[in-house]
Amino acid sequence: MKQLTLKEKAERFIINWVFLMLVWLMFTKTFFWQEVVVGAVTTMLISLASVPLFTCCTIKIFSPVRIFWIFYYFWVFLAALIMANFDVARRVLTPSLPINPGIVKFKTKLKTPFAKMVLANSITLTPGTLSVDIIGDTFYIHWIDVKTTDPDKAFKDIAEPFEKVLLKIF
């Protein structure tokens, strides 16, 4: 296990604390000060103890630019999800069923497993694509309407708008 710098530790600690505190507030559903103080102390202790354990999901939160890109990514993703639904609706309701299925592959520039998982999930929820497997940095994508089998062109069509933003976040 690699040694963590103080900054990385602080990042993980703050992410865990904020997340746990949000869950606490959601479940207790009260802002009475005794409840909030007990929740803050408990979640602080838990997140302090779990700093060396959570290794997957580090996001560099100390630069505000990344926070902005995370929100931007959320909107890009939501727009793609709505587009995907209208795409499915159009295909399903057309009597001739316009599909041309196949599996294509492409390579990604993302490094960390967490970033790859976010990209794969986003690809699954965007129009006409479903991620089948990730091996190393190669994605295998089932495409309902194959326009090209060339990896570079497929990458441009499927993943480029997401990857541009994700490279700025991670």
Partner: peptide
Amino acid sequence: MPDTYNRLQAGTKATTL
């Protein structure tokens, strides 16, 4: 849809939203 993958495509997106 004709096969499993295409059914998953339709199923996943529409059921998520």
